[in-house]
Design a binder for these strands. Structure first.
Length: 295
DNA sequence: CACTTGACCTGTCCGC
DNA sequence: TGCGGACAGGTCAAGT
């Protein structure tokens, strides 16, 4: 599921909801989804929520962080009380169905809300749901994040200013003989791009996803750079892509796929030239493109 | 080393 | 309606 725009959207939602709350308790419903010591976080206050690549992080006052990787089907859903909701302003759009915990719930975090937000019913909670159990939650020391295997060789964040066409050229040059879309999916090349936005970036760049990296000229790499930045920015603007599992922290869906050029549009007309969008498998992943617009 | 394929796990959808 | 196979926003390890 979640690629950079989805995790970023969850991060922005959580920042508004849980910074300042104290973790009262943690309940692990599936041992394989949780790593680290839950006692390191119980009783501690949340001071920040951040994202690196596709990983979501909750930072605590004691220099511990809780990392979440949602993989294909993970969800991070915050549930408040009605009173807390109204105090914070606005009712969330809850597109997600059913109640929690459900059979996909793997970890539950219980918060002690500040007194002024307290309702008699209950304090707020955070659910980590993950149908396929590929995802994980892990508690690590903040200073040791970069030692984590997943973080060790991560490529640059594509939405930071210092990420340029030149940087992209340098990064993909590590994968000369690879189809460009597969190179974009490599987290050591670029952090946060996944299967939806890789297809979209290639479309915006007007490059066939199967083209070999070594075959691309500077102008094409520049277009690819623009495609990556544009599609990720658009993904965040529309709150991410809700195909099946993804919902934001408040349970609302994302609308990017209503505007996507190619992803999940096999058999539909290209938004630019009206030719039919095609699908094929590249590196084992479904890949969508327009044969007319992408060369 | 660079690249490809299958495994991890659960659920849904589609064709017979 | 049932059954089998393909497929799903992602990494990993083990192949070639």
């Amino acid at each position: 599921m979640p690629e950079l725009p989805e995790v970023e959207t969850i991060k922005l939602g959580l920042q508004k909801k849980i910074i300042g709350l104290k973790i009262k308790d943690v309940e692990v419903l599936n041992q394989g989804s949780f790593f680290g010591n839950s006692q390191d976080i119980v009783g501690k206050k949340i001071v920040d929520v951040f994202r690196r690549a596709k990983v979501l992080g909750i930072e605590l006052e004691n220099n511990k962080v809780i990392l979440f990787h949602l993989k294909m089907s993970g969800q991070v859903i915050w549930l408040g009380t009605d009173k807390a909701e109204s105090v914070r302003g606005g009712h969330p759009t809850k597109d997600i169905k059913g109640s929690f915990p459900n059979k996909s719930t793997r970890v539950v975090f219980y918060f002690s809300d500040p007194l002024r937000l307290r309702s008699k019913a209950s304090d707020s909670k955070l659910f980590f749901n993950d149908q396929r159990k590929f995802g994980w939650v892990r508690v690590v020391e903040k200073s040791k994040i970069e030692d984590e295997r997943f973080f060790k060789n991560l490529g640059p964040e594509p939405l930071q200013k210092k990420f340029t066409a030149k940087v992209l050229k340098h990064q993909i040059s590590k994968r000369k003989n690879t189809p460009i879309k597969i190179a974009l999916l490599d987290q050591e090349v670029l952090a946060g791009v996944g299967n939806i936005y890789a297809s979209e970036a290639c479309f915006i760049a007007r490059i066939h996803p199967g083209r070999k990296v070594s075959d691309l000229n500077d102008n094409e790499i520049k277009r690819l750079y623009q495609g990556v930045v544009e599609t990720l920015t658009s993904g965040i603007k529309y709150g991410g892509s809700s195909k099946t599992h993804y919902f934001n922290a408040e349970g609302g869906r994302g609308y990017f796929l209503d505007y996507a050029f190619v992803y999940d549009r096999e058999g539909k007309e290209c938004r630019i030239c009206n030719l039919i969008i095609e699908k094929f498998t590249l590196g084992g992943r479904g890949t969508y493109f327009c044969r007319n617009c992408q060369k």
